[in-house]
């Protein structure tokens, strides 16, 4: 037993040393040109936008920062991520605000990711390398109380990231401009059918808490927070699905730019790539409309 324990401890020491060395992966981050990890790294460590766009894929592919910059004469950055919502938005805002205060925060609402329980929400693991330096430990621990132990390991922090980083560094592929990733193509009407009424989702109390914290953080920074809803191709989606977020926004006097069933978009396959996502043409048109509306809100305040 004694030999067994000694050898086991020796192996653990070796493992700790190897784990420490794995922390060196972070030095590769500065060579990233694209990908989700590259984008998150850019947001957390480099960019200083005056306009910050937050939200899910409906943010990432719908808001062209160049158009916002031209219209509002301010630097803009699209920090939307596929399958992400409140937790990611909060983490990114904390990262950016640690060195720069955005003036306008546009937050695209996707209730399934923002306030409802949903198994399809992506994990916020791209933020693990920044957990201690940007005080995101509380966020991680609130999501899973075991995270504080797991985050002690570099292997855990960089779990599933190596095969994302290395191909990106080798290819040098840039897939976003100021965080914006345009979608190309048009909607094939035969592939999709209108989705019915969204089922009654259960509210995720932790998401709601962080949704409110996100609002408080924006207020604390003195930024103008604006909620937006992008168009859907079908006009079947009910506004009921958004009721809960509307209530929270109303309580805090946050303006909502609701384009869910905007007739300029809804039903026009040339502006969509799928029923919930605009293509680059649709995104440019939508960003132009949003830019004017945001300008009006800012002028009125």
């Amino acid at each position: 037993m004694k030999t067994f324990i000694i050898k086991l401890l020796a192996f653990f020491l070796l493992l700790i040393a190897a784990d420490f060395a794995i922390g060196g992966i972070y030095s590769l981050y500065d060579h990233l040109k694209g990908g989700e990890i590259g984008k998150a790294h850019e947001i957390m460590t480099k960019v200083n936008p005056d306009i910050l766009i937050l939200g899910s894929s409906r943010a990432a592919h719908h808001y062209n920062p160049e158009i916002l910059k031209e219209a509002l004469q301010m630097q803009a950055y699209n920090a939307g991520f596929d399958g992400q919502g409140t937790f990611m938005d909060y983490g990114l805002l904390k990262g950016v605000s640690s060195r720069h205060k955005p003036k306008i925060i546009i937050c695209e609402l996707t209730p399934i990711f923002d306030i409802y329980q949903n198994a399809q929400s992506s994990s916020i693991s791209v933020l693990t390398p920044y957990s201690s330096s940007y005080q995101l430990d509380t966020l991680f621990n609130d999501i899973d109380p075991n995270e504080k132990y797991k985050l002690l390991s570099n292997s855990y922090i960089y779990n599933s990231k190596l095969f994302r980083i290395i191909p990106n560094i080798i290819s040098g592929r840039v897939d976003f401009i100021n965080g914006y990733k345009p979608s190309h193509g048009t909607l094939d009407k035969h592939r999709f059918t209108p989705k019915g009424k969204e089922p009654a989702f259960a509210v995720d109390s932790l998401k709601v808490r962080y949704f409110k914290k996100l609002i408080s953080k924006a207020n604390e920074l003195g930024a103008t927070l604006i909620f937006t809803i992008s168009p859907e191709y079908y006009n079947t989606e009910s506004s009921e699905y958004y009721e809960k977020v509307f209530d929270i926004a109303d309580e805090r006097d946050i303006p909502i730019l609701n384009h869910l069933h905007d007739p300029r978009f809804t039903g026009n396959p040339n502006l969509f790539i799928d029923p919930s996502h605009l293509n680059s043409q649709g995104a440019d048109l939508f960003t132009t409309i949003i830019a004017h509306e945001v300008d009006s809100i800012c002028k009125s305040r």
């Binding site: 192996f11 070796l14 493992l15 190897a18 292997s155 779990n159 599933s160 190596l162």
Partner: peptide, 14 residues
């Protein structure tokens, strides 16, 4: 052993 352990931590679905 080290390779397998680190592979679990780095490439596994945890």
């Amino acid at each position: 052993y080290l390779f397998l352990t680190l592979s679990i931590a780095l490439f596994g679905v945890l």
